[in-house]
Structure formats: structure tokens, C-alpha cells
């Protein structure tokens, strides 16, 4: 349904070109939930915004391919892209308070999203908004529809945001860190809501997050991103039981768990790469504990390709050459 191939996005800045995405690949099937995982600067949000066409008419330089149901989204004009936004692809954002217009009622913002793509009266659209609010679990939607965003609690706002994104029943929902700003008990409610709605509508979901736990709970497949590339993708079970890429392994080892006795974490040394000046070799090489195992400084000199083995893909010389240790190092 959605295919992203070799997508690169660069932003011109005063200090030079920031390479936010460097050959990103992503495939998505109908009804599937894919988690896009990575740390800050990994390009996960840029990927989702590029799919939404939000870089059109900006100074960003984009190359590569984004195909949605056979349509080349990158080639579309801003006007044609509009017929996809909201209607076929819906999007929700991290901070629902700033993502909603502070001066319009929640109901009118949902109704507006409906009326762009459907020719109905204001009254009918408002009824749609009320129904939608009820569907996302807002109590007393008839009254709440006339509230302003600041009159909602954080969790309710994100519910309203979801209502806004889903009101036209899009085939794809892009959720860009929708629970990061929320408390953990509210996050749990929102994750439940997203999976319930998805089961009902059978739409595909791209779930952008930095939290592997959220991925484990919600997604079928995971795409791990680092330095603007997909470094590994596999089913959730594969990623958690047999991660290939050293970065994925490092991420798991550095994550604190609620269960288990490992009371010392194993961090990844160093910090995420500077996107202004990316190395010509593997972007992770300078933090990778296995780079030394690969001969001829290949990791430093040559950018690895994404090697696909069945459903599992990884971008690593060491993995490709079968030089990585089989077991995952957990704890110390």
C-alpha cells in the first residue's frame, strides 16, 4: 500500500545542509501497524512528515520515491496532495495542545476536517464531530463539542486529535509520538484506543515513537531508524528476540526494564550523529562495539546496504559478513 524507497531529505541551514534522511526505506501493507523507532534526530518524524507531503513548497530538498496505492506522492502538486491529506492519510501529533488551534472549538476543528473532503452542511458536519467524539471515548460529546482545546485534559485532547485525524476514515494513520507528552496511565488509554479503532476500521498505522515498550504492545512490525536511515526492520517478535543490528541491540541493552534483575544498564557510548557532517561509512560505526570485528575498516569507509533476508532486513557489514556474536549482551 505504501512504499518509501531511498528517500532523502535535506534542509538548508546557515551552517550547511542538514541531512535528515539518507536513503530511507519503508514498506507498509494494508491494515498493518508499523513502529518507526529511533532517538532524536534519527529521522523518524521527518519520514512521517515527508509521507504527508508537508515539505512541499518548502526549501527542503527531497529525492527518492514515495508511492501510496500506486500514486507517486512526491510528484504530486500541493493541490493534488491535499486530496490525500486528511482523506486518505490522517496524522496525529505529539503535543495535542499545540497541535490544535487555540481559538476554535474542538468540534469545529473536527467538523472542518470533515467538510474539506465531504460536501455537507455545517450542521451535519457538527453531528459527525459529535459522533466521532463519542467514538473516541469522550464523555458527554454533545456538550464537549463546543469546548475549546484548553478546556480538555491532555488525554482528552489527544482523543479529540485522533477523532480529527480519523473523521474521514483514512486508509493510513500516521501517529507521530502521540503519547510521548502524556502520562503513563493516559498513554495506556490512548494506545488501547488506537488499537481498538484500528481493529474496527482496518486502516494501516505508522506509529512513530522512541519507546520500544510501546512498539511491543502495539505494532506487528518495527523499523529501527538511525541517522536518517532504516538500520533494521523485522517483525516485533524478531526484533525483540533476535535483533541483528548493533544499534538495535544497544538500544535494548540501554533500556531500563520493570522486570528482571539487571540493575546495571549498558549504554551506547557517545551520542547520536551530527546530521550536518555525516561519515562516509556506516553512520553508527563510531559508536559500534562490533565495528572493530569487520576487516579493512570497511565500517568506516563504506556505507552498508540494507540486506533483506526474508522478512528481516538490516544495514550492517558485520551482520552481512556474519561477524556479529549471536547472543545479545544484556546487562553486565
Amino acid at each position: 500500500m505504501l512504499s518509501v524507497k531511498n528517500l532523502s531529505v535535506q534542509f538548508p541551514t546557515d551552517d550547511g545542509m542538514v541531512a535528515a534522511l539518507n536513503g530511507m526505506d519503508l514498506q507498509l501493507h494494508r491494515g498493518e501497524t508499523v513502529g518507526l523507532v529511533g532517538e532524536s534526530g534519527s529521522g523518524k518524524s521527518v519520514t512521517s512528515q515527508a509521507i504527508m507531503g508537508l515539505f512541499k513548497e518548502t526549501r527542503a530538498k527531497i529525492s527518492g520515491e514515495i508511492t501510496f496505492e500506486g500514486t507517486d506522492l512526491l510528484a504530486l502538486s500541493e493541490d493534488r496532495m491535499r486530496t490525500f491529506r486528511g482523506k486518505k492519510i490522517g496524522m496525529i501529533f505529539q503535543d495535542p495542545l499545540s497541535a490544535m488551534h487555540p481559538f476554535y472549538t474542538v468540534g469545529s476543528q473536527i467538523a472542518e476536517a470533515y467538510r474539506v473532503h465531504n460536501k455537507v452542511s455545517r450542521k451535519a458536519a457538527k453531528q459527525v464531530a459529535i459522533d466521532m467524539l463519542a467514538r473516541v471515548g469522550i464523555p458527554d460529546p454533545k456538550k464537549r463539542v463546543d469546548n475549546y482545546p484548553h478546556e480538555f485534559s491532555g488525554g482528552m485532547r489527544q482523543r479529540a486529535m485522533i477523532a480529527m485525524a480519523l473523521v474521514c476514515e483514512p486508509e493510513l494513520l500516521i501517529a507521530d509520538e502521540p503519547t510521548t507528552a502524556l502520562d503513563v496511565t493516559v498513554q495506556a488509554q490512548i494506545l488501547d484506543l488506537i488499537s481498538e479503532l484500528q481493529a474496527e476500521t482496518n486502516s494501516a498505522v505508522i506509529f512513530v515513537t522512541h519507546d520500544l515498550g510501546v512498539v511491543a504492545q502495539l505494532c506487528q512490525r518495527v523499523v529501527v531508524m538511525y541517522g536518517g536511515q532504516c538500520v533494521e526492520q523485522a517483525s516485533v517478535r524478531e526484533i525483540f528476540t533476535a535483533p541483528s543490528h548493533p544499534y538495535t541491540r544497544g538500544l535494548m541493552a540501554s533500556m531500563p526494564h520493570l522486570s528482571g534483575e539487571d540493575d546495571r544498564l549498558t549504554p551506547i557510548p557517545g551520542s547520536p550523529p551530527a546530521l550536518l557532517d555525516l561519515p562516509s561509512g556506516c553512520i553508527f560505526a563510531d559508536r559500534c562495539e562490533f565495528a572493530a570485528l569487520v576487516p579493512d575498516n570497511r565500517c568506516q569507509n563504506e556505507r552498508p546496504q540494507l540486506l533483506v533476508t526474508g522478512e528481516h532486513a538490516a544495514r550492517c557489514h558485520g551482520h552481512e559478513m556474519s561477524l556479529l556474536p549471536k547472543t545479545i549482551k544484556v546487562g553486565a
Binding site: 508537508l54 486528511g86 497541535a99 490544535m100 488551534h101 474539506v116 486529535m161
Partner: peptide, 11 residues
């Protein structure tokens, strides 16, 4: 952010 939301709605 809400300007990005407005674009994402297809307005």
C-alpha cells in the same frame, strides 16, 4: 504545530 495540523487536514 497547529498550522502543520491544518495542512495535514488537507485544507
Amino acid at each position: 504545530d497547529f498550522m502543520r495540523t491544518a495542512r495535514a487536514k488537507g485544507l
